[in-house]
């Protein structure tokens, strides 16, 4: 059956293609703009023109940024938290998701409800802060960046859905050989769930890389400040001072701010093209189920 589009449709199609091109531009250009500004020699303030290439070329801004102790400790703290927290996230989430697939386990429903309730009820920011600092001793501890959010209920559901797709007959063979549930998890479920586990690594990893608010609440020492909170101090709080009247921005300072943005975002921008298909996969699994 040959479908003949009307004139209105064809006009729409052209408009639609152009509109999507504009979307591509406004999602990519801001980052490219930061790159060009950070590499430019002497821009006084931001320039008015659309910059497609840097004006002049200088790495001076990057040298300054990479020598900044706040950025360096920030990088160290963030890499440490991302690695440790993501590993713990994976272990705990896998355990939780696995428990939810055990149909003959008496606590299965209890655990399900324990998790679901936390989606709708929480202590709220301040009571949580008081309990974490007064009873759990998280004040000024890197554990405050690692332990809260150890198991994301949403991610657990995504993982459980995936585990349930694995044929039961496979684990029967382990049980026949006298293996227990730990063997099932380790020798059957985990090796067959590499895709969903990499989705989890990415979900959790990116969220730890980008996190800053818990650090604002709990961290006091300068040498425990993660990258994102350091960025806030450099990029945003400084800006508030500018907003209050002082004109601070000389060309080089402006470059440094853009270079800081790039230094903090580059890891994500670099891995993004390779990992985005996994992200989408992860959300799709959740979307179908949820």
């Amino acid at each position: 059956m040959v479908y003949k589009p009307s004139i209105g449709e064809r006009v729409f199609n052209v408009f639609n293609i152009l509109f999507m091109a504009v979307m591509i531009f406004i999602c990519l250009y801001p980052f490219w703009y930061c790159v060009t500004c950070s590499l430019s020699k002497n821009i006084v303030g931001n320039t008015a023109s659309l910059m497609l290439l840097p004006k002049g070329f200088s790495l001076a801004a990057y040298k300054k940024v990479l020598a900044d102790p706040l950025i360096l400790t920030g990088y160290k703290v963030t890499i440490f938290t991302v690695v440790v927290a993501t590993v713990l996230n994976l272990i705990f989430t896998t355990l939780a998701a696995f428990l939810l697939t055990r149909r003959d386990f008496a606590l299965r429903n209890f655990i399900t409800w324990t998790m679901l309730i936390t989606l709708y009820f929480s202590g709220g920011m301040i009571p949580t802060y008081i309990v974490y600092t007064q009873f759990l001793g998280l004040e000024n501890s890197l554990l405050a960046l690692i332990l809260p959010g150890l198991i994301s209920v949403y991610n657990t559901i995504v993982m459980r859905t995936n585990f349930e797709g694995i044929p039961r007959s496979l684990e029967e063979s382990v049980k026949v050989d006298g293996g227990n549930d730990m063997h099932v998890l380790w020798h059957i479920i985990v090796p067959l769930s590499k895709a969903v586990i990499s989705v989890m690594v990415l979900f959790y990893g990116v969220s730890h890389w980008n996190a800053w608010f818990n650090a604002l609440l709990y961290i006091r020492d300068r040498d425990k400040i993660p990258l994102q909170l350091a960025l806030r101090a450099i990029l945003i709080q400084e800006q508030v001072n500018t907003g209050e009247g002082a004109v601070d921005s000389m060309g080089i300072a402006e470059n440094i701010k853009f270079a800081t943005i790039i230094v903090a975002t580059l890891p994500i921008l670099c891995v993004y093209p390779f990992i985005q298909k996994y992200f989408v996969k992860g959300v799709m699994i959740g979307a179908v189920k949820g």
């Binding site: 355990l95 696995f98 428990l99 202590g123 309990v131 150890l150 549930d181």
Partner: peptide, 25 residues
């Protein structure tokens, strides 16, 4: 289900300490 109970301990401990305790806060 002995192994499953062992696995449930850390999971439930997390939810009790980090999600439910703050509710009493």
């Amino acid at each position: 289900n002995f192994v499953l109970y062992l696995m449930a301990i850390p999971v439930l401990a997390y939810f009790v300490l980090f999600c439910y305790l703050p509710m009493f806060g």
